[in-house]
Structure formats: C-alpha cells, structure tokens
Design a binder for these strands. Structure first.
Lengths: 202, 202
DNA sequence: AGGAAATCTGAACAACGTTCAATAAATATT
DNA sequence: AATATTTATTGAACGTTGTTCAGATTTCCT
C-alpha cells in the first residue's frame, strides 16, 4: 500500500469519525461538509474524494451505529435469565437504552432519507437485516410450530412494535416520559405480546 | 372584516392547501417557498406575511392531517363488532390504512423537526394528544381495574407499538411487505398484545 | 530526475429559507 | 374628495447549503 493511499484511508476514517461525533452532538441536520473539512484538516471539496456525497457519509456512520447496536443486543441476549421470554424483554430494554444513550445517532438511522432514485448499497441493507436475528432465535423457541418465513415476519413485527414505543417515548415533542417508566412500559408490553402470541399459537 | 384582511385570509388558506398538496406529491423535503408562491400567485417574500416560517406551515398542514386521521379512527371506532378488543384492532388497521393512503403527509407528521429552541404551539400539541383518546376508551373497558394515569400510559404504548409496525412496514428501505400482509400482522399482534395485557391484569 | 497520474484546493454554482428597502395599495383623517 | 398614514407586496439580496471543477500541488513510476 502506497503512502498516499494510506493517508487517504486515514483521512476517510477521520472523516467518518468526525461525522459521527458531529451527528451525536448536533443531530443529523447539524452535519455540514465545511465543518467536517475544517475538523479533519482539508478543503471542503476534498471531502468528495473520500466519499461520494453526504448520503454515503451518513450511511457509513449508520453502519457503525448499527454495529454498536448489534453488540449491545448481543450482550443482552446472552446475559441473565435464559428463558426466551425474558431474553426478548432484555433485548427490548437494551434497544431502548441504546437509543437513549445514542439518541442522535440512533435517530439518524431513521431520519435519513435519500433521493428516491438512489438505491441503498448492499452493505447497508445487510447491516439492517442483521438486527432481526437477535429476536428470531428466542422467538423460534417460543413458537416452535411456526415456519421460517412466518417467524421472520413476526420477529420484524415485534422489533417494529418495540421500536415504535422507543421512538415515540424518547420524543420530547409529546409529554416526555421518564426513561425508567419507559423501560417498565416496554417490559410490560413485550411480556404481554409474547404471552399473547404463545397463547394464540396453541 | 375589511377587504384586505379577507384577501389575506383566503391567500393563507390557499397557501396551506398548496403546501398540503406539495407535501403529498413530493414529500416534506419537496416543499419549497418559491414553488408555493408561484402556485398561489404571489411573490416569494409574501409567503412570510401569511405564515411566520415554513415550520408553522408544516405544522398547519400537520394539523389538517391529524384531524383527518382523527376522523378515520373515529369511523373505525364505531363501526362493526363492538367488542373492545375488535374495536382496537379496527383502529389499528384504520391507522395503517390512513398512513398508506396519505403516506407523505403522514410521514411529515413525524419527520418534521423544529429548531430545539422553538417551542411547539399549544394547538399543535393538543392535536396530537387527541389521538390517544380513541384507544383509551376501549382499553378502559378491557382493563377496568387500572387507574386513569396508568391507562393513559398503556394507551400511549399501544399506539406507539402499532405506529412502529406501520412506520417500519411502510418503509420501502427494508424488504417491502405488501399492505395486506402488514394489515394481517398488525391485527395479529394487536390481538396478542391485548390478550396478554388482559391475562396479566388478572 | 522528470514526466504522468492522482489528489487537493478554494473559488464558483445553483438552490434554499429568510429579510428588507422600496413600491403599491388600502384605510383613516381632514 | 383629497391627502396623510398605515399596511401589504414585491423582487432583489443575503447567508448557508451540497456539489463541481479548472488549476495548482503532490505523489508515483521509470
């Protein structure tokens, strides 16, 4: 690897790190190419040698966020009471905690919209699909008679439901719920959902 | 009422209607003051005599959307099987259908973010809180031993969970789910949630 | 060392929300 | 009815954006 390419790679990493920090501090709408350039010590235009456009930059930050989220969910998956139901509750709570602790980065995952004609790169799509896998496994234990396809859909629904509670719960727009209350609500509703799913499966 | 003020009011209404149509057709990010001005036949700057800024404009469109949503949920509330459980399922499906039929306007409700220092006007906050009332009533019948406060929180959680399923379900980003499948999923999970809530309350 | 290739720069562009001095219109006053 | 005063409208201009690009600079290969 030549010296120039090394420097380029290092700059690209710096750029993504700076973008991550900027989103974390000022939100997705606070991300500005000129500020980034100043931060990593290059000209405004040079950003476009490291990255095609800001869309890609946001996606790269999103990929990092998704991987950290994945780790947080993995930790929750394998810690504590191994009953599938309580595992799912822990995963949901871990999702809530991650969102609260990484509020702006987590929001950026869902706020960001690309032009309708541009298609998501494969690596970004994959990053997202990996998430459901945490839910799939415990769910399969609880609903053994369901097929792969059906389980996948249910896993996605369960994730979406928890996501909704977290998303609206952390929104300050409406009456703000204190975080401990939100965690309790999520735990309660996840348990209820699973109870209901298992009972209906009988 | 003087002639000038009448004209102004009429223009303001035109402006909001034009903004509504523009969001519906091109999404929140497709809303441009210059296009609006051309649409309603005035200069770009005149928009700011009708409305403080685009934030207010988006909020006014949002208010209209929320009122139409309220009507759709009201219709679902009082039609068909009067059992509280099935009523809640119908409300959830109606929410899903409304979101699908008013995709961009519905998205605008949640995508729009104002500067952190600007506070939401009261009328906008009220519009939003009204929604939970549709869920509160059937839920109170199902969980008679819960207090007002507790019921309010559960209603918000239930709404949020359904919202999450609709939000991620209608996202084309991930694997797109056909609308009928999404409706079926929502119905199933709402029934499960309610089963679980009622069983746990015993 | 020297020419070719890649990279970096910062000025320039187009589009945006917003503001504002000047103009026009409407209303109030005499 | 004529004039003065308040109000509304205009479109040019401002400050920020993301993005591009011709020229300057650096790096690379022989």
């Amino acid at each position: 690897m030549t010296k120039a390419l090394e420097r380029r790679e290092k700059l690209r990493v710096d750029l993504i790190r700076a973008a991550e920090q900027m989103i974390a501090e000022r939100g997705l709408s606070g991300l500005k190419t000129r500020d980034l350039a100043r931060e990593i010590g290059c000209a405004n235009g040079a950003v476009y040698n490291l990255v095609a456009d800001v869309d890609e930059l946001v996606l790269r930050v999103g990929s990092r966020t998704l991987h950290r989220l994945d780790e947080a969910l993995s930790a929750a998956e394998s810690t504590g009471n191994p009953s599938p139901q309580e595992t799912l509750v822990r995963i949901a709570i871990a999702y809530c905690d991650f969102a609260a602790e990484n509020l702006e980065l987590w929001r950026a995952l869902f706020e960001h919209r690309m032009a309708a004609d541009k298609i998501l790169p494969d690596w970004s799509v994959n990053d997202q699909l990996q998430l459901f896998r945490h839910i799939y496994h415990p769910l399969a234990l609880l609903l053994p008679e369901r097929g792969r396809e059906e389980l996948g859909i249910t896993a996605r629904s369960l994730f979406s439901a928890v996501h909704g509670m977290v998303a609206l719960g952390l929104e300050q727009r409406l009456v703000a719920v204190p975080l401990p209350a939100l965690r309790k609500e999520i735990a309660g509703l996840v348990r209820a959902m699973i109870d209901g799913l298992v009972a209906r499966a009988k």
